[in-house]
Amino acid sequence: MPSIQTNGLTKQFGDDMVAVDDLNLSIEKGEIFGFLGPNGAGKSTTINMLLDFIRPTEGSAQVLGMDAQEETAAIRECIGVLPEGYEFDDHLTGREYIEWTIETKAADDDPDEILDTVGIRDDAARKASSYSTGMQQRLAFGMALINDPDLLILDEPSAGLDPNGIQRMRSLIRDRADNGTTVFFSSHLLSEVEAVCDRVGVMTEGQLVAMDTIKELRKKAGGRESIMLECATQPTRDAVDDLNAVSEVLIEGTTLTAYCADPAVKADIVRQVDDQADVVDISVDETSLEELFNQYTSGGRDGMAQEEANTEFEEVPV
């Protein structure tokens, strides 16, 4: 039984805005699945349908084998959710939010343990509305972890977190997945997805344009690697001409750059060039995932997914 399964899931807003278009997903138990796409690609809409916040116009979704629209309470017993675009606006402290979640889930977690896990125990007595974005994110993540859910749905979980927080969250996610929890992880940050996910689905304009492991995706996107060799004397083309996998060779002075589709050929390149003109330095450049991402999403909303990725790491007190 897949943890999440969608069949032709479609959501249309108004007459012409199709937010999610005929989505077919199948996420297996224990998997960390990265749901990748630029802003407005339909990731949150999909998650909102899985959680029955909004209703599909066509198709259906099953969460842990239960119908997402019919068996909402039973589903919510078994999942943990870190939503996107929330606020802690009640007059409650961080600890009280944790306690409330424990009570609602009829769980027997220790509030202090959860607070420790996400690193906000020292601030637990303060009102959650006074927390910084990163601390609110930690609190929300802590709430999602309560009662050891079978499925964690995390919508843009690293938003507002500092690098330490991101690191902590990643290792928690991996721990949980190792214990059999399925993690459904949405992000517009490639680095995030690359760091933790087993498998990735790329969403753009409401459609799933790719779904595979990062490695396979890179292959499919026609990605190539380049290897740059700094030599003692000027090398010539002859050194690598006999290698089929090498698609292009550039020589500038004593530097030789070779592009290859098959990463395994790099060792041969080094060996052969070294025979001809002593190699003194080596650097390798993989097709960056950003490029790959842009390839799939045609540059996203404004063609600058990279820029967003960089500005996301806002400064947050720890």
Partner: peptide, 18 residues
């Protein structure tokens, strides 16, 4: 309406509440 506007409804309805 406040829970809907502030997003608190997402916590309420992510937990076992209908």
């Amino acid at each position: 309406a406040g829970e809907r506007e502030g997003g608190g409804i997402k916590f309420l309805l992510s937990l076992p509440n209908t």
